[in-house]
Design a protein around this nucleic acid. Structure first.
Lengths: 196, 196
DNA sequence: CTTATTTCTTAACCCAAGTCAATGAAAAAA
DNA sequence: TTTTTTCATTGACTTGGGTTAAGAAATAAG
């Protein structure tokens, strides 16, 4: 099961058995129950994460209202902005399901870099991917209407729709749960009434 | 004037006079007239840019409609996604004013790295900043209504409002020019009618 | 200065999302 | 199982942005 992390790393670098062994003894795997908040607004993030099993989401609390910005599932690394900037986090990070997560810290990363210097290149590769996916996400949001965003999500990540409550999906799409219900209804209705 | 590029670099690294000299003879500065398109949809970006003077913007053409995603002004580096992914660009990059721009390419970067190896660290620093600012931008878009986004822009980058036509600002905010006019009117009206 | 062209504003009307409230369905807890 | 809580849907109504079209204001061109 914890092979998941090697599957992920193999996208960027080929590791020897010895190196994998080092990683295994180094990395800390932890379990968290659904609902656990791993990062709160105002807190300084001293850890970054990699999801082995389960699902998480990030959200802002704006006037008491949840604004979801991202869902994370298996094989995804999560580097909170706060971890990078060393400033207090403005958003929350919470488990949507029971999770098994690999936790990284500055000290542990430093130690790893000493033991496996080749890992250094990995950083900028992951960063680069992050920039591309983040910008793509923004651009799609700009380009599409809420209904188009829902259809796009349905097409690109249907598994998320079966895994995540609709009111959080709605928030992620930038609308209210009631509006998402109506969009779904519209889609059904129109689909059934194409010909006579 | 071309000191601007050193001002920018000094945020990340201290360069010696010799190194600056190398950069100066290496870097290609070019002038472009307002309206020049530096990158088109479908094209492969073989260059990245740094604005010394002037202003540019990136936009998608969706069903013939311009969807602005970003404005760039002096001291800003521009790395098109296409340059990173080596896939055809999905958006345009165009000069909003007459511009003077430093142009980078893979070959030139490689050559520079050979001459000034220290520059390597710069890459991941710029990338990191890019991730943070991109994610912040997305999150703000999610959190705010069009009216709030306009107020935020007014507060954070008032200079843009005096420099960029309102119909492009509107597009950037995710609304139509008519709506931005109404928002501005609403703001005036309400502002004047607070007390009796 | 005058004429074109581009940009901005206004108005009337439409429609999709927001709001509020009620109900139904499903999941979790007792 | 029953109860409770959470989540999803629906309806009536409001609101804010989209659309269309016209005219005003600002810039550029002649």
């Amino acid at each position: 099961m914890d092979e998941a992390i090697f599957d992920f790393l193999s996208k960027y670098i080929d590791l020897t058995k010895e190196e994998k062994a080092i990683l295994k003894e180094q990395n800390l795997f932890k379990s968290f129950a659904k609902g656990t908040v791993l990062l709160k607004e105002g807190e300084l993030a001293k850890e970054c994460f990699f999801i082995l099993k389960g699902c998480m989401y990030s959200y802002y609390l704006v006037d008491g209202e949840v604004k979801v910005t991202e869902f994370f599932v298996e094989q995804q690394p999560i580097t909170p902005i706060s971890y990078t900037t060393k400033k207090p986090s403005e958003y929350y990070l919470e488990c949507l399901e029971d999770c098994i997560i690999a936790i990284g810290s500055e000290e542990r990363t430093e130690e790893l870099m000493r033991k496996i210097p080749r890992l250094a290149i990995l950083g900028s590769c992951v960063l680069e991917d992050e920039v591309v996916s983040q910008k793509t996400k923004y651009d799609n949001f700009i380009k599409l209407s809420p209904e188009q965003r829902y259809k796009s999500l349905q097409k690109e990540s249907p598994e998320l729709l079966n895994r995540i409550p609709q009111y959080l999906i709605a928030s992620y799409l930038g609308i209210k749960p009631e509006s998402l219900s109506r969009i779904r209804k519209r889609m059904h209705d129109n689909h059934n009434s194409l010909p006579i």
